[in-house]
Amino acid sequence: MLREKPELIETTEAMEPLGATAKNFQLATSKIECDVLKSSLENPCAGALVCFEGVVRNHNEGKVVLSLEYEAYESLARLEASKIFAEAVKQYSILSAICVHRTGLLQIGETAVFVGVTSAHRDAAFHACRYIIDEIKMRLPIWKKETYEDGISEWVNCQHTGQQHLKDPHLKNHHLKDQHENSSGEKKQK
């Protein structure tokens, strides 16, 4: 399960023009260093930096979650992420954006996903950050297995038949629809 190390984000490569490459997206097998990622976004032209962290929460649908595990289909995840970045650039006036998603076993409180966006003015960064995290949740081939206090483990969204259309990436307006959050909390930094 070795992936590229998150340290790569420290390089200026993470600041390459968006949409051209998939370098703005990384999968990490170890702790996401949010401060390092935030520093990598520093840019004198940026008047706004919006960061989002999805954090492992201790409950989901009334069950106590002890830990969870993410698995990714890396090559397709990278391609899909680069499309999402290109879409964000097209829609919003942003300077840069990065995303790092964890794989492997995570404990409560750990950061599962980090998204950081810079722009000259705050509106674009807020909107683009929201767009990127929403699309990543909907479209990237990444799966989550939760382990509960009763010892049972389940792949999220794969157990209850009949609800899967709610997650269909082809359906639009999911910003309104996607209220069925699972065990990632939210933390916004400024």
């Binding site: 999805g54 993410y70 990714a72 289909y73 397709l76 998603h101 599962a112 996903v113 995290i133 990543i136 949740k137 909907m138 479209r139 990237l140 081939p141 990444i142 799966w143 989550k144 792949w155 999220v156 969204n157 794969c158 899967q164 997650k167 990436p169 699972n182 990632s184």
Partner: peptide
């Protein structure tokens, strides 16, 4: 690759 319902983020 058959893609099960995703649950990233």
């Amino acid at each position: 690759v058959f893609i099960p319902p995703v649950a990233g983020g």
